[in-house]
Design a protein around this nucleic acid. Structure first.
Lengths: 355, 355
DNA sequence: CTGAAAGCGCTTACAG
DNA sequence: CTGAAAGCGCTTACAG
């Protein structure tokens, strides 16, 4: 019932070989023959079976992607970037998550062994690096995204966590803040160490080495941000800014500052990291270090697709820069005059994020 | 270099047919033979090639999933639910988004024609229903998730938008609110119409038919929620509650109410819809109608996987209930007494959402 | 209980 | 410029 290359060949009065050549544009062939075959392909609506092509060519035209979980908002962005590029290249994206822990990894490993895909994009789920490391040796090209452990054993795409931390510091120094509280992410992540280092170094270089009591380890939750602020306020430790290692904990910091009766940014300026949609919805909106998630997914996918086309995988990480996005949590918004006919406060435009 | 079934057969001294039988547990075979073959499989680390199996069996053991975009937070949840079930069933999930519009659909259609997957899960991107509709006729089983247009032509998984709207109404009536402002989503979505209908009917049934000025069409943005509130306040229209059709617009409503110097929930109680993570981070936290996103993804995937195993696809939609989650935006939080040694306000526990 | 052979739908040397 | 044949790695009647 399904149309095969044999049907096309028969109807066009040529061999399967010839049809295949037309399909793949390989070899010289008579213009008339080619035109006739093409007409039949069109007429029959023939599309080569991915299974047949896959077996014959020894490749699936599928890219695998392994991520820890899809419920973290920034991972969706990375995957979106990757899927766009993969699709444009005529490939498909086979998605794996590590949501069910060891069982997920077992099933993922089975698909690797079954050669279900030609290459792999990875946001490393914790504790899987040993397994991932052996994959290239088994003939599977791997590109790492956001090498969290900062080990440079794979072709990878990274962002400038160090420079991002430095940019946050530079901005806060620029608005005269000399005693910033840092609420870090978990120390076991390379990104956290880099963000902290860039920040601390910049302050030190400007004559303001950070005292230990101003660096608090957090865990990327809203609560860790508010708790850190509360504790310092209660302890009577003075600070005039907060640099939190993600937007959620920065949001917690903003809230705790305001609940303590102080103002943001007047008394305490707050800077986050990531620039997830939530950052636009804090009050005031959050100044934050934008990570190019989408672009990282795109770059990693492009590396792999180009590699299939013959370009060797780069040996050094491709680094995409972070960008400091300045909003009301560090710089008071100039009150926008109301346009004629409008009496309420002007609302700043925010990109639509549909439900 | 790659190990094939022929290698296993040779080493075990049997035919490929026998190895295949061991692999698939089909046909009677001698216990000793089976054990020997299994030992060789183990020894060689043999895993059948997905490509070979796929071609021979005429199926790929891959499930396709088409979604509008991954940057909407709730879609990530649905996909996560689906991928968990698909993986558990030994299948792979091939992900397609409609992020690049018509071009995305063209590439998706090519993969459909190439028979790249055995079944399809769909969150319908706008305007693609005509195409999707013809797929089952071409032999591709399709399960729809959250049939937004409310057309029941496919096996599908849905949630109770109508009952969700009614639950929001019942809750607001229960706390004595008789003049609610409704900020809807775009009217072209079936979910919006259902949420509105359930809400309006419940109020009418309780003797409070809603006047037209209390129903405002929104677009799921934070701004539409705050603008609607501002406009009514300025117009002197009295209302004592807001029911917004998603959490983001509910968040906008909360903010506008407070900026106008009124209290939430004292003067105006606010209810949202969805229960995305943001709902826990508004101030006060948002009462909202929880949609079982994860469970919908799981249910749809299970339908398809079961169908591959022989269970017919259900003809009526599988409906998963919404749940009303009551938080501080409708019911004042009872002030938690501070534990000894803690002087700040107690912070309610929130599940960790890692960066 | 086991195997030889054909077939799944393509591609690719090889020969002409 | 074109085609017959072998092969990709499996499964599945069919025969014994």
């Amino acid at each position: 019932m399904r149309i095969t290359i044999a049907d096309v060949a028969a109807r066009a009065g040529v061999s399967k070989t010839t049809v295949s050549r037309v399909l793949n544009g390989r070899g010289e062939l008579d213009d008339d023959t080619a035109a006739r075959v093409r007409a039949v392909i069109e007429e029959l609506g023939y599309v080569p079976s991915a299974r047949g092509v896959g077996l014959a060519r020894g490749r699936t035209r599928i890219v695998g992607m392994l991520v820890p979980s899809l419920i973290w908002p920034w991972i969706g962005e990375v995957v979106q970037g990757a899927v766009d590029v993969v699709e444009s290249g005529g490939y498909g994206l086979l998605l794996f998550t590590c949501n069910r822990g060891a069982q997920s990894m077992r099933q993922f490993a089975a698909q690797v062994s079954a050669k279900s895909f030609d290459g792999l994009l990875v946001i490393e789920p914790e504790g899987t690096l040993d397994y991932i490391t052996q994959l290239p040796g088994r003939g599977l090209p791997v590109v790492l995204i956001d090498d969290r452990g900062s080990r440079r054993v794979f072709p990878s795409v990274a962002t400038t966590n160090l420079a991002g931390g430095a940019a946050a510091a530079g901005h806060l120094l620029g608005i005269g803040r000399t005693r910033p509280l840092v609420v870090t992410g978990s120390r076991r992540f390379g990104c956290t160490r880099d963000r902290l280092a860039g920040f601390v170094e910049t302050y030190a270089a400007n004559g303001h080495p950070l005292p230990p009591e101003l660096v608090v380890e957090g865990d990327f939750t809203l609560e860790c941000g508010s708790r850190a602020v509360q504790r310092l306020l209660e302890g009577g430790v003075h600070f005039d800014a907060v640099f939190a290692h993600n937007d959620l904990s920065a949001g917690g910091a903003i809230r705790a500052v305001r609940e303590a009766g102080r103002s943001v940014p007047g008394d305490v300026a707050v800077v986050g990291f990531d620039d997830v949609p939530y950052a636009q919805h804090t009050d005031p909106p959050l100044t934050t270090v934008h990570q190019p998630m989408r672009e990282m997914g795109e770059a990693a996918a492009r590396m792999l697709i180009d590699h299939f086309a013959g370009t060797p995988l780069p040996e050094t990480p491709q680094v995409l820069p972070t960008t400091l996005i300045v909003r009301g949590s560090t710089v008071p918004t100039t009150p926008v005059p109301n346009p004629p006919g409008q009496t309420g406060p002007a609302v700043p435009a925010t990109p639509a994020v549909p439900v």
